[in-house]
Design a protein around this nucleic acid. Sequence first.
RNA 1: UCCAGAGUGGUGUAGCGGUAGCACGCGAGGCUCUGAACCUCGAAGCCGGGGUUCGAAUCCCCGCUCUGGAUCCA
Length: 576
Amino acid sequence: MSAEDPPAAGDETTVRTKQNFIQAIVQQDIAAGKNDGKLVTRFPPEPNGYLHVGHAKAICLNFGLAEEFGGRCNLRFDDTNPAKEEQEYVDSIQSDIAWLGFDWGGQELYASNYFEQLYAMAEQLIGKGVAYVCDLSPEQTREYRGTVTKVGTDSPFRDRTVEENLDYFRRMRAGEFEDGARTLRAKIDMASPNMNMRDPVMYRILRATHHRTGDTWCVYPMYDFAHGQSDAIEGVSHSLCTLEFENHRPLYDWFLDHLDLRARPEQTEFARLNLTYTITSKRKLLELVEGRHVSGWDDPRMPTIQGLRRRGYTPESVREFCSRIGVARFNSTVDMVQLENALRDDLNQRAERRMAVLRPLKVVIENYPEDKLEEREAINNPEDESAGTRSIPLTREIYIERDDFREDAPRKYFRLAPDRDVRLRYGYVIHCNEVVKDERGEVTELRCTYLPETADGQPPEDGRKVKGIIHWVSAAHGVTAEVRLYDHLFSTPHPGDVPEGGDCKDNLNPSSLEVLQGCRLERGLADAKPGDRYQFERLGYFSVDPIDSRPDSLVFNRAVSLRDSWAKIEKKGSKK
RNA sequence: UCCAGAGUGGUGUAGCGGUAGCACGCGAGGCUCUGAACCUCGAAGCCGGGGUUCGAAUCCCCGCUCUGGAUCCA
């Protein structure tokens, strides 16, 4: 580059990297020397369900920040409610995070690790006179709390002495009282406009076997009493959570203020991810699984990490998606095509091309000798020369896609039709002479002739223009497989928007799954291994189902179709 | 009704007092042995009203709308 050259548009010195508001906060805090200039974040799932794409956003945020600023991100299971939590979920969550490509240092943490310390903190607050044991029943507690518009009423047990509270709390731990008989509450303000500050419960009595601590405890801390202190214990500097915890921040800070903790984590909230045509609610996803509307948490139609994984998504594409959608404080719904495009962009670069005919229609090339077999050279990936080439056999009888033939070709349709031409990808131009039908009038076979001079992309001698190019598979050499096509799980963009008494399940898309048998794949695909991904030319990206596929009966999942501008044209035409 | 938060093209996101940018989507064209990819061009936006200022998406005030908040859930 000569000295006169203007700086390139992408010049690093001229482009300020765009950052989201949390990156900005972190950068400022580090510059200001907060937490000795060290960033520590955490991802704190409750092990009571499978992770979904919304969690992926939080994971990418927390782990991504740690990577970017040379900090650390802890994986901490928020396991303070033994009634709901299970080891199975712990395992799946770890597997999902690892799949996404993040590293928590091999050492997962648990809020339950801190039960003893949290208990001591509770006694400390009792000692300070800011926590008390309350004998109100759950129902009474609710009544005394008031409503959003009506202030609460002080509990009659609010003014017990420190000694009395300590005694009761120790006996709670010792198991002297029934489940639900007493609670430990923070003495804050029953008239606070923030409901979370109306003497929130810190501990409840609950006899349930905990997945880690077994039966050693019968009192368990509530989320609010566990989360901030767990952050502090771990030296977390930035505690990122979703918007619905905004009203909890004063309480988060209150506990920290009243305990003598060295570290001072800071909670910042961001908007959770919503995606069109699906739901990101653990509860509702569970309903779909339990109601058998899907085959399981890993059904390829599910927005769970396991579902995306099985469908054929790459971890890179999910991370790229998370980076594209950004992070903000505004509740928003991201268009599903964003996710799909992230996958397309990734696989377009990396996936090898193959030919596959999903709905086969036999074509006999009448002037092609029966015993003739040509090996045609095909490019494995036009985006990556190093992927090389392969050879595919061409014979007299082949299969083409039913959709690539129309008896009555609409305007602008430039594939095969009676007395029309089309090019076989990597092969010759063929001309359709005759349409063979069965007694029901259904097209069963096409009789065609090929133009020998049109090999290697050469045009027909008579100057005819052939615009259409279609994929095909030799009838004698293809392998048969099952292919599963997926569409949106819900038929409406905002399935959660339902009228009173409605249910998002009313919006389920009845044709979200289409199973195709007898698909014909190019011969080399016989060796495809579970999880392998390919672009089936002109169709989309497909991967071998890791659960149901067998070497002798392959099952492919369509992860995402290719963009289809013909479908768009046709749709537009039919509207007019 | 009370508290908290948020409103920038269709969607998502930058901008932090000085000509409103990016991505996807959309439209038009080009290229192409994938109607893909790629390239070019284009349409489209600061919730409303007042103020402060030479100058406001940005600061102030008043509205409007949306989201969240009453589990011994997280």
